[in-house]
Design a protein around this nucleic acid. Structure first.
Length: 156
DNA sequence: GCCAACGTTGGC
DNA sequence: GCCAACGTTGGC
């Protein structure tokens, strides 16, 4: 099993929204970055665990945990001319972009802020900390475990 | 809203 | 294939 971190803008879709959609989960669409696409297409598997990260908002950080319930399939929005995720160069035969389906597992009592993560020496080589801009990124197991322990230490 | 860092595009 | 120009992400 692999661990991941998926970014989302909570104004668009938050951990609370993910909790509401239930066990079928939410289609994680609109990823238009090749590196992120390659991770989803080649490495994300059913059962993988995902940190849900809130970006571009007042409180940025890890808000909770989700689980992959469906591996990569063509992102339906790339074929929809009215969608902002439409890609005219993508075809049904050879889709350029994929999506995965994510279900809710847990919302943290208290969001783990990016500022706190940046203070942790064991996380110095984490992708989130040293390469901020990737919206789908792998998380090493040692980092995953460390962050869960860090969460346990936080006052709620 | 600013701006740094990174990605993508396209001329050559 | 290089690289300048432009676009986007995302923290602050």
């Amino acid at each position: 099993m692999n661990y991941w971190l998926f970014k989302t803008e909570p104004d668009e879709f938050s951990i609370d929204d993910l909790a509401k959609v239930g066990p079928e989960g939410e289609c994680w669409e609109g990823i238009r970055n090749y590196q992120a696409r390659n991770f989803m297409r080649d490495k994300v598997r059913v059962g993988d665990k995902v940190f849900i990260y809130h970006s571009s908002c007042k409180d940025v950080g890890i808000a909770g945990i989700g689980e992959i319930v469906k591996a990569a399939f063509p992102d339906p929005f790339q074929f929809n001319p009215t969608s902002k995720y439409f890609d005219e160069k993508s075809t049904q035969e050879n889709p350029r972009w994929v999506a995965v389906q994510v279900a809710f597992i847990e919302k943290f009592d208290k969001l783990i802020p990016l500022s706190l993560l940046k203070q942790q020496p064991p996380l110095e080589d984490m992708v989130l900390v040293n390469r901020g801009r990737l919206s789908i990124q792998p998380v090493e197991e040692k980092h995953w475990q460390f962050i869960l322990a860090l969460k346990g230490q936080q006052l709620s």
